[in-house]
């Protein structure tokens, strides 16, 4: 028989992974619910996961590639920007989705106990479908420009983990904050837009002045984007961009886990 002890807890605590595992089915159904709810009663359905990044890329290509003539490392600008937008859209999408996950499900939080971490987790997993679907567009572009990815593709899982850790880490922090401070929701919309210019989405890393390059590499998304570009363009992996970001992403993730756990106990009281 399992014994439960309920007491007031204090300070920082480690996430109860065993409990999280017991609720894995809930994670699954919440993820499915997220996907189904997002595209239900829409004509194009998951087609939106293609249209959104495609049109953004087209606009970028016209404005930055065509009018502003931004340097694109010698590859077609459309491919150049789509390779970045593909992970970037996932990152920005999960940020707003996970930040909102607790507030949107306040009704559940105040009525039933379950590991609250499931909510931002489900938000991040359900967005993975969009990520996979928008890969289809990338495939079309690769075929059109007759680009064959290099052997560096084997590093893709590392980049994916970095992307997930970064999204989840920041997502956990933001969702926990958003329960108490609704400002997060309003601020996030335009901050994500601004952040776009802090990563090499529309421009190349060569445009960054030498003395700021290390500071720039601390943005975990820089490494992810540069890594993905290198992968598909058969260039050597840019570890100098990836490693600093990987460390920062890990820090975000670990801090996020603890911060979320610490804030968890007041969710039901302030939601």
């Amino acid at each position: 028989m399992n014994k439960t002890i309920i007491e007031s807890s204090k300070g920082w605590k480690v996430v109860d992974f065993k409990e999280l595992w017991r609720y894995k089915d809930l994670l699954y159904f919440l993820t499915v619910r997220g996907i189904k709810a997002r595209y239900s009663q829409s004509v194009l359905g998951v087609g939106w996961a293609i249209i959104q990044p495609l049109f953004t890329t087209l606009v970028f290509t016209v404005v930055f590639g065509g009018l502003a003539k931004v340097e694109s490392d010698g590859m077609p600008y459309i491919l150049f920007s789509y390779l970045a937008l593909w992970p970037w859209n996932y990152f920005s999408g999960t940020l707003s989705e996970s930040a909102n996950s607790l507030v949107a499900n306040a009704g559940m939080i105040t009525k039933v106990y379950f590991p609250r971490l499931i909510l931002p987790l489900a938000a991040i997993f359900s967005k993975l479908l969009d990520f996979i679907i928008s890969f289809a567009v990338l495939l079309v572009l690769l075929i059109y420009f007759q680009v064959l990815p290099g052997w560096q593709v084997i590093f893709f899982p590392i980049l994916l983990i970095q992307l997930l850790a970064c999204s989840l880490g920041i997502g956990m922090i933001l969702s926990a904050m958003a329960v108490q401070y609704r400002d997060v929701k309003y601020a996030l919309g335009f901050i994500v837009q601004l952040l776009l210019y802090g990563a090499p989405v529309v421009y190349s890393t060569t445009a960054v002045p030498e003395q700021y390059q290390f500071l720039y590499s601390l943005n975990p998304m820089v490494g992810v984007i540069e890594g993905i570009r290198a992968m598909f363009l058969s260039r050597p992996m840019p570890w100098e961009w990836i490693l600093p970001g990987a460390i920062i992403a890990t820090l975000f993730f670990v801090f996020g886990l603890f911060y979320f756990r610490k804030m968890e106990r007041v969710f039901a009281d302030v939601a």
Partner: peptide, 26 residues
């Protein structure tokens, strides 16, 4: 039902707990 923490005091429970504070949650 573990939804919120007490300020002080302690509860000991032996066994699986299910709380129905609402029907059709989620």
């Amino acid at each position: 039902s573990k939804i919120t923490e007490p300020t002080s005091g302690r509860i000991e429970m032996n066994g699986r707990v299910a709380a129905l504070l609402e029907v059709g949650t989620g």
